[in-house]
Design a binder for these strands. Structure first.
Lengths: 205, 205
DNA sequence: TAGATTGTTAATCGATTAACAATC
DNA sequence: TAGATTGTTAATCGATTAACAATC
């Protein structure tokens, strides 16, 4: 395997390849080519081959890639060949949707707790969880060693909660609050903001 | 204004600038610099200036940018100086979260209807809407001229529903189903898939 | 074998950064 | 005026594509 530093833009495409490959596996397909995979994900065959070849020689000339094998390799590379515990902060509608969603497990994630600062919500049941007091969040995360959090609190609370999460040892935050977070270099943040995506499309309308 | 074709990667950053600027306006700030804005969004000052200057000369040497004026210009460029009607397809947890969310209006969007194919859900109230029969979706969209849809149906239904939306005249789809959609060139798609974002971060853990 | 497809190199293309004259 | 900051150019850097030998 090539151990040069891999550009983040390539890392960002791997989950998309993985998702498409898992779907192909679900459909009963056994092998694919860079051509076919590229058509499915809207990326050129050359780029698919180049991206994958950063990590090893996973294909065979003449026949392409074994879907199962490539899935295994991508899961390994992305470190989702295991199940990561994840906490959710914010027991609103989005928190509920996450708590109820059954699809994370197959992708490498397992929600273990949901926190809220609203005393009226604490103790309530939500998607099989009992909403916990945000006041105990830092201790709970420290004790359990969870490193991934999904942040579904209002904009006004987002930065303060992110600071607490980082204090507790969280290293990756999926931020649903439509605001940029200031975090140290060793912490990764990804944003989910539907309005931003919509605005990116209206330009072309 | 420069009317060369603007790269999509620049268009993708504009909503992020806009979000940060609107937050700064909310905080009562009046002017900013490429330096300050860059620090807030994690992008170099040079790139901010270059991006903005694609569309005109919106700043002043020595003093920077008027936040209000730059917001106006970005809204104009992104065509969110108006309110776009949007339909939601899929009245599950995510559909409910969207229906209840009050934050779209300020960003240029207004949910006008929510559809589901499940007869048990049709007629139910959800976030001030009455869930409508998906069977009537195409006609309703055609009649109202809505061009933006949010897709929150299961993976198994996503492509078929997308095909219907396109048939109805929808030109932009925000797809919450974790699957790639095949759409003609004139239709824009953006994906929201939390697992994909999480997998992009686990690589670095 | 003949056809197909990879992995990789070189060429091209595009995006980012650095630097600075212009000017508020 | 002096200091600050833009808009823009040129240089650098990085990403994508095209092409093809290797080989299944």
């Amino acid at each position: 395997m090539n151990t040069r530093k891999i550009p983040d833009i390539i890392i960002g495409r791997l989950p998309v390849y993985l998702r498409a490959l898992q779907r192909m596996a679900d459909m009963g397909l056994k092998t694919t080519s860079s051509q076919e995979l590229g058509e499915r994900v809207g990326i050129s065959a050359a780029q698919i081959r180049k991206d994958i070849s950063q990590f090893g020689e996973f294909g065979k000339q003449g026949t392409g890639y074994s879907i199962e094998y490539l899935i295994d390799k991508l899961r390994e590379i992305l470190k989702v060949d295991r199940i990561w515990d994840v906490v959710v902060v914010g027991a609103g509608d989005v928190g509920r949707a996450i708590a109820n969603y059954q699809g994370f497990r197959d992708r490498g994630f397992h929600v273990v707790a949901i926190f809220d600062s609203d005393k009226a919500k604490v103790g309530q049941s939500m998607g099989g969880f009992t909403v916990e007091d945000a006041g105990e969040m830092v201790e709970r995360i420290k004790a359990t060693g969870v490193r991934i959090a999904m942040l579904t609190v209002p904009v006004s609370a987002a930065q303060a909660v992110a600071d607490q999460l980082i204090l507790a040892g969280v290293k990756a935050i999926l931020n649903y609050a439509p605001v940029n977070l200031n975090v140290p270099n060793h912490v990764k943040v990804q944003h989910i903001d539907p309005s931003t995506h919509l605005q990116r499309m209206t330009y072309y309308l």
